[in-house]
Design a protein around this nucleic acid. Structure first.
Length: 271
DNA sequence: CACTCTACCTGTGCGC
DNA sequence: TGCGCACAGGTAGAGT
């Protein structure tokens, strides 16, 4: 389940590999499963074929790829969301199809950008402007300032766990990191924003920033082979029944809005 | 506004 | 062994 740190890791791979995706020309677009495209596949194919990759950036869990027409200099954008099981690879062209490959951009230099997704939840969008997507999102969770975060917290009255998962509040936190952030902040997932002390709101910001920064440095979470690489150690996610690393009490799992939610009842009291 | 539920998917792992 | 089924998760959209 790629969340912000895992998507950031993908971005780093694409931009720092040698050769990088930046500068590559799209020779051919192959859509192996139509539902991967939100919109018309033909429009996407026609729009991107022949263009050069000019820029890549991330906002929350979305990746944005800017492709430039070398004559008009106009930029055309693709947005990509990996959802649950999506993976992106920059590979030699001959490795461009696997069992769960959903689309491929065949590139110059005998390279290909391959998107695999067993669960087929991942989506790609053709955009004129990334703002068509980013305008629906809150500030990126890795780079949001303390002032902005505290101000947004102050203007809502909601339970903390659903709030952290709301991409229009801050973009990039998913179920795993929401639990990890609340554990580090020592706040119960059902606590309500309006009832937090100012000390607690700062603790929440510090936990958000600290967990995501460390997870990015670790290239993502380390969870029983769910996704590759990643050495960020989870403290509570999937740890139900195991001892809390801080107090030794047992980690509990409950359902909160259809989501598995893990926490330490001692370190994260509700009362 | 805040919330709940459903649909979208399929690999995994459980109980029988 | 094999079958059926619940489960995992992010997001959109509809409904309360």
């Amino acid at each position: 389940m790629p969340e912000l740190p895992e998507v950031e890791s993908v971005l780093q791979c694409l931009t720092t590999s040698r050769p990088s995706l930046i500068g590559r020309q799209v020779r051919e677009v192959c859509i192996l499963r139509n539902s991967v495209v939100d919109g018309e596949t033909d429009s996407l194919i026609h729009a991107v074929t022949g263009l050069h990759c000019y820029d890549i950036f991330r906002h929350g869990k979305y990746l944005f790829f800017g492709f430039q027409d070398s004559l008009s200099k106009k930029l055309t954008w693709l947005a990509l969301h990996l959802r649950m099981t999506g993976r992106l690879f920059l590979v030699p062209e001959q490795q461009s199809v696997e069992r769960h490959t959903r689309f491929v951009l065949k590139l110059d230099q005998r390279l290909a950008l391959r998107f695999d997704d067993p669960r087929a939840f991942g989506r790609v969008w053709l955009l004129d402007d990334p703002a068509e997507v980013t305008s629906r999102l809150g500030p990126d969770a890795l780079s949001v300032s303390q002032d902005s975060f505290l101000s947004r917290l102050g203007s809502t009255r909601r339970q903390l766990k659903p709030l952290l998962l709301d991409q229009s509040f801050v973009a990039g936190v998913g179920n795993i990191y929401a639990d990890e952030i609340l554990f580090r902040a020592q706040l119960h997932p059902l606590r309500v924003t309006a009832a937090l002390s100012s000390q607690e709101t700062v603790r929440l910001y510090d936990a958000l920033h600290g967990v995501l920064t460390q997870a990015v440095a670790a290239k993502g979470a380390n969870i029983d082979g769910v996704f590759e690489a990643g050495s960020f150690p989870v403290a509570v996610y999937g740890q139900e029944g195991k001892p809390c690393r801080v107090c030794g009490g047992l980690i509990v799992k409950m359902k909160l809005g259809q989501r598995g939610t893990h926490f330490c009842p001692v370190c994260q009291p509700l009362g």
